[in-house]
Design a protein around this nucleic acid. Structure first.
Length: 286
DNA sequence: AAAACCTCCTGAAAGC
DNA sequence: TGCTTTCAGGAGGTTT
């Protein structure tokens, strides 16, 4: 389940192993992997060939590779199970290999997009004046972006008529936070996932943002969170932050602060993990 | 118009 | 034993 830290690990790998290389050929093995690309699989392959890959960039959970001397970028989203792997050309194809990108150099490696559940994909889009692929213009800056505006976030959060976890998962308000890091940051903040956004004071918002940043930086330092082989870096290696999780996936296990058994609640077609003692349910609205 | 809901997909694991 | 059901969930599109 790649969220901001996992995507950033992948971005760094692309920067190290792919940026600066010139695309030779592209093989799309599953059309769904390029469904966001309106010109189709053939158009996607043709548009990339011959272009040098620029500096790998990221906003929230989106990654993109600008093409030098071109107003276009290759946009990537890993979805639930997408992987961008730099593999030796002679390595056997992965079972869920969707796209192969080969380069015009003698390095002997190629870039592969592998995705079991096919929620992710690659596509080519024109950049906006600020260098962002046009289709992600609605994605908010993420909390590790130096230009993220804490005061504006607080104002926007207060204006919402919803609950805090829904707001954290809304990528147009704050990007990069998914189910795992939302639960972790809420646990660290001792906040219940259904606290109404309208009840947030400036200090409470500041504390929550601080915990979001802390948990993401901690995860980044550990190479991300891997529960299984579905999330790995470009070299196929797992992260080990899963062993540091305090909330996510810990149903029935003791809260690391107070020892109370953690709970899981079905919520929005997914799960929320929380401590019923540290994270008290908000008073129901009158 | 903003908020909530629906749906896409595969495979592991649980249920019967 | 083996088939069926459940679960994981990001985010665009649709509905309310």
């Amino acid at each position: 389940m790649p969220e901001l830290p996992e995507v950033e690990v992948v971005r760094r790998g692309l920067e190290r192993w792919v940026s600066g290389r010139v695309v030779q050929t592209v093989e799309v093995r599953h059309p769904r992997a390029v469904r966001r690309h309106l010109a189709g699989p053939e158009g996607f392959a043709k548009a990339l060939a011959g272009h040098r890959v620029g500096e790998a960039r990221r906003r929230g959970k989106y990654l993109w590779l600008p093409l030098d001397d071109s107003p276009f970028s290759v946009l990537a989203h890993l979805g639930m199970s997408g992987q961008l792997l730099v593999q030796p050309q002679d390595a056997p194809d992965e079972k869920h290999l969707r796209i192969r990108i080969c380069f015009e150099d003698g390095l002997g490696t190629e870039l592969r997009f592998v995705d079991q559940r096919t929620f992710g994909g690659l596509s080519l889009h024109e950049n906006t004046p600020d260098g962002l692929p046009d289709v992600i213009a609605h994605i908010a800056r993420d909390p590790l972006d130096t230009l993220f505006d804490d005061a504006a976030f607080h104002t926007a959060l207060r204006a919402r008529r919803t609950t805090i976890k829904r707001a954290l998962l809304d990528q147009s308000l704050i990007s990069g936070v998914g189910n795992i890091y939302a639960d972790e940051a809420l646990w660290r903040s001792r906040l219940h996932y259904e606290r109404p956004t309208g009840t947030f004071t400036r200090p409470r918002t500041a504390e929550l943002l601080g915990h979001i940043r802390d948990v993401m930086n901690d995860a980044l330092a550990a190479g991300g969170t891997s529960f299984d082989s579905l999330y790995v870096n470009v070299n196929g290696e797992s992260g080990y932050f899963d062993r540091s999780l305090d909330a996510y996936g810990r149903e029935g296990e003791p809260c690391r602060r107070c020892g109370t058994p953690m709970r899981r609640r079905a919520w929005m077609n997914r799960s929320s993990y929380f401590c019923p003692r540290c994270q008290r349910a908000p008073r129901l609205p009158a």
